[in-house]
Every structure is written in structure tokens, then in C-alpha cells.
Design a protein around this nucleic acid. Structure first.
Lengths: 340, 340
DNA sequence: TTGTAGGCGTTATCAC
DNA sequence: GTGATAACGCCTACAA
């Protein structure tokens, strides 16, 4: 167990121990150029032996950078938030920057004010936004007026003056549905997410595109709206499976809803994928752990979050849109068995 | 849309506008006594009209308090973390204190160092710990040496010199199992959590106590160890239900495992609760939303987190252990139907 | 009840 | 390459 120093060591003490000026220590701390190799070594040695850690507050007060970024999360899915926090944090650790993560509740009428106050009070070096805030015109406009750096995760539309990390949701959904068609399904149900979310609309569009590409008619009865929750997926599946002419496959546009659909199938005594195939979008690796028979599009949320943080740190290099790859993960057969 | 001030207003500007000294503004800001009502009003008015927000960094640097607390989470369950963050944050907003929430991964060998560095760099006014860090002797000892305030959520054992918020896990498990016995079950399976977690041990103890109280023999074959995950619960249930003399009820000591057990029952074509009753501990409101037929002990994680933050802010009043109530939530019948 | 002076630990500026 | 010196915005201590 290390001995605890009597007082928190300061730059001054490091400077004295290394026999250089305060400013030189500061240079080493901030990785500036123009420090003699020898000086640098002496300073680093002194820092180590004193277990020196710079004061966040002092750096933020004196300098232009606060060495903190804020992650603005306003999303009802715990799994999603967890993955996002993990991804951003991983990149922050590499950069030696602190992450301020505050989950907001979408119902908070004061969201705008809270973000405002977060920015003014803590002066973060940048922000990372997640859906649906990425599409909040008013908040985005405010950030621009403040001239603060920010990066969007999976925004509805790519803007030429905002960096973003995302996957192509429409293409992914089309790949998934295209696969189901390829293995023989003709009636494919869709459990769509709430239309307020751009992600939902994109995935629904991909579903429609795949049908069109295969010259299949779109049956409105096969489309149900969910809320991205297990419960809504479960209910939507029940409605679909109760149709006079039920689908042979169901595509759910989020993992929670897919899990709900699967539970419903089980509850109804249907065997998956024998009686009905269930496919889904896996935003959070939920399906991977939980539902072996589920075929999914794996969206690497953590990787998107990591990329977003990376873009933030590289923002001075200009606006960039980084597309992250998705995977089609086929678990078991997805072909229809039941003769209809 | 409010106009954006040219520069961030400082105390000095507020003071000039209100016609008082800087110190008086500071007094108002910190709710100190000895400020004339009239002065206070003038200052508040000035603050409002300038949209003044104090600088976190400057306050932390100059004062003894940093107006931030840190939430140390090192837990693999996204739902749990979500609830904890929500609870702590709610109390922080009331207190006008910022929450630094950083999820650590339990595998991080450098956990100790990271917490160290968090404390030294950001100088938080206090910490909130969640399991299993609450039981990490080495980390706890370090916090004590630093003389930093902290509160534990659901620690293994209550310590006379550490404040804590918790529920009585053993009693809760005993209530649940006692209920199953009361409605007629004689063979009750247990899906225990990993024995490294105090919570698991406490819940398992409650299970045993309830059997003892009812003069029922404990059959070791009916106890399976899970990992608090859906998958492990699912597997454990499969083993239990494959026994020559399977249980008529299964008690899972976490929500994810209970959900897994339920999925297994469905997959095996068993009707719940007709063929087998499933009961569980609901740490995160998962069961409430997701699994209507599940009877559970509802652990109000969010309330515990809120209470922990409350204790932290009241810490000067001395050590306190606050026990939070749990609820036995019976959904549908839990009585055994199957003749065995 | 109010104000003045000094300093918190770091970075920015500018000379050397 | 390096080092004085002045900020940064607020709080503490003390005086009035």
C-alpha cells in the first residue's frame, strides 16, 4: 500500500524536485514541444516519485481546455446507454480526458436548460450526442451558437457541418429482410419502432425497399408499431400471429422488441424458427447473449460510440462522417418450415 | 430563444449590476447567512438578468467543496446501473450538485488506481459505492485514509463507521420462499447468484431459512449457481427441470436469471405457472415491464440509490444505515397445479 | 451585515 | 529550450 502524501503534490513541488521551472513541468504535462529530452525525463521521474496528479479544476480554470467531455444521453434503453458509455469512456481513457455522463430523461422539460448549464458550468471540450437529441433542432442550434464542438451518434440525417458516427440503418434492414426473402419467406411481419425516432423510419424504409426489390407487395396489416420495448414487441407479435393469414417471419427493428416477439411465440406454443422465424436488430448485444435462435443485424453501438469520441478529439481536422459496419448474424435456420 | 451573452458573466459583473461587493454575491450563491433581504433580492435579480452560472472549476479550486460527487459503479448489469444513476442523479439535482458517473469494468486491474486518480484530480465532495466495490477492503481502506466521505449501497455487512442504504436481502428471499411454501410448494428450486456477491449469499441464506422454518428438508440437487445473467438463469432452469424429480417452483435470485428461467420453461413447452411456478428477485423493474406471470420481490434500486445520495449529503450528521422496504409482488397464481 | 486582500494550481504571454 | 509574471473566477480569512 503506497504511503499517502501529506499534501497533494503540486506542479511547484514537481518543478523543485526536477530542478526546472513550473512552466517546464506544465509543458511536459501537456505534451508540448520544445522540451529537452533530459528535462522531460527529469520531470517525468519527479512526477512519478511524487505521484503527481494535476488538479482538474485548476487546469480548467486557467487553460482553454477543461480536459472533460460530456456525453448527453437521453434514451430509455439501459442497454443502449451502457454500451454508449462504455465506448466513449474507452476512447476517453486513451486520450486522458474525463467523461461526464449524465443520463437525462426524455420527459424533462428542462433538458435544454440542463445542457446549457452543464456547458456553462463545466466548460467541456466537446459533447457527444445520442438519438434522439441528435435531431433536436433547437439544441443543435444552441450548440452552434456557442461554437462548442460536438459529434452526433446515428443522427437522422448527415449534416455537412456536423461530424457523426453511424451505421446505414436502411441498408441493414434491407439486408436482413432480403435474407428472409432469399430463404423463402413471402409474408414478413414488421415490428417498427416509434416513428419519432429517425432510426425507426430508416429501418422501416429498408424493410419496404427489400420487398420492392423482390417484387413483393407490401401488406399494411403486417406492419405494427412498437415502442422499442420488450412489452411492445411482445404485444405487436401477438397481433401479427393472430392474423387470419399470419406472417411466416417477423422482423423486429430493435433487440428488445425482438426478444418480446420471441417470448410471445413461446407463450403461444409456437416453435421458433419452425413455426415462425424471428429476426431482429440487435443494438446492444442483447440477442447475442440471450436469444440463441434469433437471427439479427448486429449494430455495434459501442464501436459507434468509440468512433464518435474519436471524431470529437480529431475535430480540428474538419467535419467527418464515419460509417460503421454492421453484421448479419444468422443463428440457426431462418427458412420457413410450415406449409402455409 | 435567449440571446447569448457576449462573454460568460462572472461574479464581478453580477456584483456591479447589483451594486454590492463580490463577496456578497458569493454569499448569496452559497446560501450563507448574514445577507440583508434587500441585498439578496438585488443579487438574485442581477443573476437572473445576466443568466449567471458559477464556474465549476473556479469554485472547486478556490473553495473546499467541489460541488460534485462521484458514483463508482462496477457492475455488469446495464439495468442496475441505469437505475442507480437515475436515483443518485435525482437527489443531486435537488442538491444542485453534479454527479460524475463512471462505469468501470470489473475486470479492470487498475480499478483502484482509477478511483484514486478520480479523487485526486476532481476532488469530489463524496462518493457513492455500489456492489461489489462496497465490499472491497482495499478500496474502502484507501477512502478512509483519504478521509473522504462515502456511502455504500447494499454492502455485504453494515459497518459502524460507514453509512449505507440497503434492503434486507435475506428477509426478502425468506418472504418470497415462505410465500411459495404457503401456497403449497414442497420442492422449490433455487437459482443462486454467484457466491462472490454478498447479495447472492444473503438471498440464498433466506431461501434456506424459509425451508428450515417450514421444516422442509433442503435438497442440494435443487440448488444451481447462476451468474446473474439471463443465459445462466436459462441454463440453470433447464437443469432443474430435467431432474428426475423436478421442482414445482423455481426461485431465481435476480431478475435476469428469472427471465431466463421463464424463457426456458416456455421453450420446454411448460406452462407457467401451471406446470412450474417461477418467482424471482426484481432488482431493476425488469420483471414488472417484461414478465407479467412472474411473482417477484421488488427491490427498489432507484430508491436505494436516492437514499444513498441523501445520506452522503447528510453525512455530517453522523453515520446512518437506512433500510429501504421491499415489496412482494404476486402476479397471477403461484400455487402448484401439477399433481406430482 | 458588508467589504478588502490574498491565494487556490494551473496555463498563457512574452521575454530571455 | 526555458523561465518570470500575470491572469483564470471564485472562496477564505479577516477586518470594518
Amino acid at each position: 500500500m503506497r504511503p499517502l502524501p501529506d499534501r497533494k503534490p503540486t506542479i511547484k513541488q514537481v518543478a523543485e524536485r526536477a530542478g526546472v521551472s513550473i512552466k517546464t513541468v506544465s509543458r511536459v504535462l501537456n505534451n508540448e514541444r520544445y522540451v529537452a529530452v533530459e528535462s522531460r525525463q527529469r520531470v517525468e521521474e519527479a512526477m512519478r516519485s511524487l505521484a503527481f496528479q494535476p488538479s482538474q479544476a485548476a487546469r480548467a480554470l486557467a487553460g482553454k481546455k477543461s480536459h472533460q467531455i460530456a456525453l448527453i444521453c437521453d434514451n430509455p434503453s439501459p442497454y443502449y446507454i451502457y454500451e454508449v458509455q462504455a465506448g466513449v469512456r474507452a476512447r476517453c481513457i486513451e486520450q486522458n480526458v474525463r467523461m461526464i455522463a449524465q443520463p437525462y430523461s426524455i420527459n424533462s422539460a428542462s433538458l435544454h436548460d440542463e445542457i446549457d448549464s452543464l456547458i456553462v458550468q463545466t466548460n467541456p471540450d466537446g459533447l457527444i450526442l445520442t438519438p434522439p437529441i441528435t435531431d433536436n433542432k433547437s439544441i443543435i442550434a444552441d450548440l452552434r451558437r456557442r461554437e462548442i464542438n460536438f459529434v452526433c451518434m446515428s443522427p437522422e440525417a448527415l449534416s455537412p457541418d456536423t461530424s457523426a458516427a453511424y451505421i446505414d440503418n436502411a441498408a441493414a434492414a434491407a439486408v436482413m429482410v432480403g435474407h428472409l426473402i432469399a430463404v423463402g419467406h413471402r409474408r414478413i411481419g414488421l415490428i417498427a419502432g416509434h416513428p419519432d425516432y429517425a432510426t425507426s423510419r430508416q429501418r422501416s424504409a429498408g424493410y419496404r425497399q427489400a420487398l420492392t426489390d423482390a417484387n413483393l407487395a407490401l401488406d399494411p396489416a403486417l406492419i405494427k408499431i412498437g415502442q422499442f420495448t420488450f412489452k411492445s414487441g411482445s404485444e405487436a407479435a401477438a397481433e401479427l400471429l393472430a392474423l387470419p393469414d399470419p406472417p411466416s417471419a417477423i422482423f423486429a427493428s430493435s433487440d428488445d422488441m425482438a426478444a418480446g416477439a420471441l417470448a410471445t411465440a413461446h407463450r403461444l406454443g409456437l416453435s421458433v424458427p419452425h413455426d415462425v422465424s424471428i429476426a431482429g436488430f440487435d443494438d446492444t448485444a442483447l440477442a447475442e447473449v440471450v436469444w440463441p435462435p434469433l437471427t439479427t443485424i448486429r449494430q455495434p453501438t459501442r464501436a459507434i460510440a468509440y468512433a464518435a469520441a474519436d471524431l470529437l478529439f480529431a475535430q480540428s481536422d474538419g467535419i467527418e462522417h464515419r460509417k460503421i459496419d454492421f453484421d448479419l448474424i444468422i443463428r440457426g435456420s431462418t427458412a420457413p418450415f410450415k406449409s402455409k
